[in-house]
Design a protein around this nucleic acid. Sequence first.
DNA 1: CGATGTTTTGTCAATGTTGACGGAACTGTG
DNA 2: CACAGTTCCGTCAACATTGACAAAACATCG
Lengths: 203, 203
Amino acid sequence: MARNPQTARSERTRIALRRAALARFQSQGVEATSAEQIAEDAGVTLRTFYRHFPSKHDLLFADYDSGLQWFRGAMAARPADEPIVESVRAAIFAFPYDVQPLTQMAAFRAAELDPDRIVAHLRQVEADLATAITEILHRRFDGEDRALDVVVTARCIAAALFGAMEVWMLRDRRTLADLAEASHASLTALENGLGDDGMFRHY
Amino acid sequence: MARNPQTARSERTRIALRRAALARFQSQGVEATSAEQIAEDAGVTLRTFYRHFPSKHDLLFADYDSGLQWFRGAMAARPADEPIVESVRAAIFAFPYDVQPLTQMAAFRAAELDPDRIVAHLRQVEADLATAITEILHRRFDGEDRALDVVVTARCIAAALFGAMEVWMLRDRRTLADLAEASHASLTALENGLGDDGMFRHY
DNA sequence: CGATGTTTTGTCAATGTTGACGGAACTGTG
DNA sequence: CACAGTTCCGTCAACATTGACAAAACATCG
């Protein structure tokens, strides 16, 4: 009796589908590629495509959770008594932005896609990041019951980072260094109660 | 020459569609109701349905932006030199949670719907709230260029409120009073740098 | 190898959603 | 009222997505 899923066969079709999809996306664009074409190229049925990927666009975003994995690892490597914001800051700065899956298709990704879709996806990533931080904090506060503090802290850190990204995205010249700087500033602002003058209290 | 959209006629069909949809949703459930049924009940074509509403489920969430409108009004009524968190706190506490559209369908809403859909929608609302707060802060800081502070502050406030809601939702007994209390605590935590001991700095 | 339980696919059908095109209804004007 | 400009709606056709059911491919055990 075969017990566990994800057999070699299934893995092969998954790879075939991904390869076929990315090739089509490159050559004719995302929206101009139908899910059926992808399936045909991979030698399977449309239905099988949807058994391996929740949606056509999911293929474009499919690798972000490997980034999350990386983040979890980086956080785990930090001393447990370090202020959480410090840990995050260190992790952010060490992030390998040039890792293959992230830059691979970055070029044609942003160009053609529906902005709403991208924004929705970014929100999803932010939420997942917040969840990851929540789990880490939970572990650090093992016994104590500080659910509210933990959740709010985690969400605020994620919010600060993605707020920095938003501001960065609206700028003209966008270098990775600028993004890192904005993230840094944003975390610092958080530590100081937002703003040089403590915006939370005073404004 | 007729210049502006939203004529009386269009308004009538929109109302008919909404009425038809809600009736069906009540009697046979949301998922068991097809968009085509709604259109037929309203005496129009399927295509027309989608001209008035972006999606079937949108009808369920369609009234949240009236809540946002209310929030904007409440914020505008506050003195411009009041700390932003104070303004938000006051607005939150004055919110008419019992206003018709919000409670109207609350019952069958949460029950049947795909949790992912609900969560995604909540994220959307959170983002819109953050945007609203950002605009308010922009106005309060008119001349000065503090884009990063403004965006991050706004996002953190929204994050705190929805974090409180998350924690509240996971509890057994959920009263509106509890939600208000959690929101209050969450905003206070934000003001104090998160946690009695300033979690941002120390943990 | 053959029986048997599991995993992966294919087939079929229904629904959700959207772009393109043309006709119907409506509004202000002469 | 006839006319021209707009807005709204119906029709048609493509995709995207998903549940239900059955055949095909595979692994395991005797």
